[in-house]
Amino acid sequence: MKIAIPVDEKSLESNVCISFGRAPYFLIYNTNTRESTFLDNSAAESTGGAGIKAAQILVDNKVSILLTPRCGENAANVLKTADVEIYKTQGDSIKKNIHDFISGKLPLLDEIHPGFHGHGRN
């Protein structure tokens, strides 16, 4: 099973990124092999729809769990359609959140905020 977390830097010691779609990297943790890899989030550069694209990237990488502080409704739709479960991170620590998730201590993310609709228009 692959877990994804939006992170600020390519390091396990760095912090959970407060934004999902515009996070610079995703940490992908494989619970079977206990391996961590980092994925560049090319969606971060998008002027709009970053959450959708970021969600697509995770789905294409066969992620089945996302741990994130927040998530927009469009991204949540993509993830739900792909049966990815979304859990809410607690605090900044990446390691602690992975640990807490595995021991069943993280809650499901229930607050889905409205997205950054539109952008370079109006």
Binding site: G49, Q56, A82
Partner: peptide
């Protein structure tokens, strides 16, 4: 980024 491809078909984000 108004389209995504999930479970063998595109989904469209109208907004």
């Amino acid at each position: 980024n108004a389209l995504a491809y999930i479970k063998d078909k595109p989904i469209i984000f109208e907004d």
